[in-house]
Computed example of a mutant assay.
Amino acid sequence: MATANIHVVPTGDEWAVEVAGGGARTTYPTQEAAISAGTERAKRDKVELLIHGRDGQIRERNSFGHDPRDVKG
């Protein structure tokens, strides 16, 4: 099981799903396709998914595992 977070990032005219720290990188034609693939991978690996906008800034984060916050409800 991977312990590195998954990022959805712009790459030219496409979008990539990559593992933090220089891991594997897979490209997709749309951001939606990359988010879908990234979500599945993050759920499987129980890590955080970070979705970047075209400007490279993180616009959304989703935790699928080791969430440090203890929030009930």
Rank of each mutant, 00 (worst) to 15 (best):
A2R: 15
A2V: 14
A4V: 06
A4P: 10
N5E: 12
I6R: 03
V8R: 00
V9W: 01
P10Y: 04
T11D: 14
T11G: 08
G12H: 09
G12R: 12
G12D: 12
E14A: 15
E14C: 06
A16T: 02
A16C: 06
A16E: 06
V19F: 08
A20N: 12
A20C: 09
G21Q: 07
G22N: 08
G22T: 10
G22W: 07
R25A: 07
T26M: 07
T26L: 11
T27S: 11
T27Q: 03
T27K: 03
T27V: 15
Y28L: 01
Y28A: 01
P29C: 03
P29W: 02
Q31S: 12
E32Y: 01
A34K: 00
I35L: 10
I35E: 15
S36E: 14
S36G: 05
S36T: 12
S36Q: 06
A37Y: 01
A37W: 02
T39V: 08
T39P: 02
E40K: 11
R41F: 07
A42W: 02
K43F: 00
K43E: 12
K43V: 03
D45K: 11
K46R: 15
V47H: 00
E48A: 11
L49E: 00
L49P: 01
L49G: 00
L49Y: 02
I51A: 09
I51M: 04
I51V: 15
I51D: 01
H52D: 05
H52K: 03
G53E: 15
G53A: 15
G53C: 10
R54F: 07
R54A: 15
D55L: 09
G56F: 06
Q57D: 14
Q57M: 14
Q57F: 13
Q57G: 11
Q57Y: 08
R59I: 15
E60V: 02
E60R: 05
S63M: 06
F64S: 01
H66G: 08
P68G: 07
P68W: 02
P68M: 03
P68C: 01
R69P: 01
R69I: 02
R69V: 09
D70V: 03
V71S: 05
G73M: 10
G73C: 04
G73F: 08
